[in-house]
Design a protein around this nucleic acid. Structure first.
Length: 253
DNA sequence: ATGTCACAGTCCCTGTGA
C-alpha cells in the first residue's frame, strides 16, 4: 500500500502535473495540501477518471486539503470541529488506515499573530491525535511548515530568528510525536536530509537549499510495516512544478 | 536578502501570501 503526501501549491495550476504523477506512480492514498480551490472547483470527476474517490475541504483562494483514495474513502471529517476559519485538515478512513491531510499554518514571523495561531493549531492537532480511540493504523501527513531538527534545514544559520525552525515549533511537533507517532522518513533515513521543499526563488532547488517540512507521521503498527520511504525529487523538476515534492511511503499490511 | 509562483481585484499591473 502506497501512501503519499504532497503540497501541490494550487491544484488548478498543478492539475497536469498531479494527474500525470498519479498515472505514473499509482498511489493508493494521496494526501494533498494547498489546493487553493472551492469545493465547487475541485476535480472530483478528474480523479474518478483516474480510478480514485476523493474528499476535499476547500476554502478558495488559500489553503484547502484533500484525500484521494482507491482503497475506499469513509467517514470524512473536515477541520477540528471548532470555529477555525481556515481549511487546513481533513480526515478519512481509507481501507485499513485512518488518514489525515494537514496544512499547518506558515506562521509568517515570530512576532506575527499568525505564529501564535500556528502553535495553537499544532496543539489542537496533538489533542485530536491523542484522543484517537480507534484501532486503525494511523497516518497524519502533510505540510507541517516546521523542520523538526537542524538536519532538516540546508543552513540553520540562514533561519536564525525565522519561523519553521524555532524551539516552540519544534516542541509542538515533539508533543505531537509523543502521542505515539513516528516521523517515518527520519526513522528510515536517520542521516540523509530528505528535503521536501525548495523555494522557487534564488535557484534554491539547483543549489540544494531545501527544508524537510512535509512529514508522514504514522503509529508503530504502520512503522513496523513500512517497506519503503522516499521523496520524489523528480516531481520538483520540469514544467510548472510545485515548490514541494511528494513524500512517499509503502506499507506491507 | 530575495533572482518565483499563484491568486484576486484595482483586471494586463499591483498587493498579498508563501
Amino acid at each position: 500500500m502506497k501512501v503519499v503526501t504532497w503540497n501541490v501549491n494550487s491544484l488548478t495550476a498543478r492539475w497536469p502535473r498531479v494527474s500525470e504523477w498519479i498515472e505514473a506512480n499509482a498511489p493508493d492514498v494521496l494526501l494533498l495540501q494547498e489546493t487553493k480551490q472551492t469545493d465547487q472547483k475541485f476535480p472530483f470527476a478528474g480523479f474518478a477518471e483516474l480510478g480514485y474517490e476523493s474528499v476535499h475541504y476547500g476554502q478558495g483562494q488559500w489553503n484547502g486539503v484533500a484525500i484521494i483514495s482507491k482503497v475506499g474513502l469513509e467517514s470524512p471529517t473536515r477541520g477540528f470541529g471548532d470555529d477555525d476559519p481556515e481549511a487546513r485538515i481533513i480526515g478519512a478512513t481509507c481501507g485499513p488506515i485512518r488518514a489525515y491531510s494537514c496544512y499547518v499554518p506558515n506562521g509568517r514571523a515570530l512576532d506575527n499573530p499568525h505564529y501564535a495561531y500556528k502553535l495553537a493549531w499544532l496543539s489542537r492537532l496533538r489533542d485530536l491525535v491523542a484522543q484517537r480511540a480507534d484501532a486503525w493504523p494511523y497516518v497524519v501527513g502533510g505540510d507541517f511548515n516546521v523542520a523538526p531538527t537542524d538536519l532538516d534545514c540546508y543552513d540553520p544559520s540562514a533561519f536564525e530568528g525565522a519561523t519553521h525552525v524555532s524551539a516552540p515549533e519544534r516542541a509542538a511537533l515533539a508533543a505531537l510525536e509523543a502521542t505515539g507517532l513516528v516521523d517515518l522518513t527520519r526513522r528510515l533515513h536517520p542521516e540523509e536530509p530528505c528535503y521536501s521543499w525548495w523555494d522557487y526563488r534564488n535557484g534554491a532547488f539547483r543549489r540544494g537549499w531545501g527544508l524537510r517540512i512535509d512529514l508522514l507521521y504514522v503509529d508503530e503498527v504502520l512503522a513496523a510495516a513500512t517497506t519503503a520511504s522516499y521523496v520524489d525529487r523528480e516531481a520538483r523538476k520540469g514544467e510548472k512544478p510545485s515548490d514541494h515534492a511528494p513524500v512517499v511511503a509503502e506499507f506491507s499490511l
